[in-house]
């Protein structure tokens, strides 16, 4: 399983990772190794088996529609790299 350099660049871009061209060859090998390992799963015959998205409980547990949380502005903002009064402050996002 081998990835094109362009695919590696694209994956990095979607993940917002800056990578040097020098790193690409190594990433090709590493990602290829991961994919190859996962690829082993396709040897299994799962014809007619329903996909599951979890184990244990069969269905989602639900909560009541009650406000129990949220008035915690300082806690929420405390780890932010930057804030402006009650807001998170981030580098300008230009549309």
């Amino acid at each position: 399983m081998s990835l094109e350099p362009a695919t590696v660049r694209r994956i990095a871009k979607l993940a917002r990772l800056g990578i040097d061209d020098a790193e690409i060859a190594q990433l090709q090998v590493e990602l290829g190794g991961i994919l190859g390992w996962i690829e082993q799963l396709s040897e299994l015959d799962v014809e007619g088996v329903e996909p599951i998205s979890g184990v244990g409980q069969a269905a989602l547990r639900m909560r009541a529609d009650v406000v129990t949380d949220g008035a915690t502005r300082e806690a929420v903002l405390s780890n932010a790299p930057d804030r402006a009064g009650p807001f998170f402050s981030v580098p300008k996002v230009v549309e």
Partner: peptide, 9 residues
């Protein structure tokens, strides 16, 4: 709100 920053709520 600011020339170089975006504020998030």
């Amino acid at each position: 709100q600011n020339p170089t920053r975006s504020y998030i709520d």
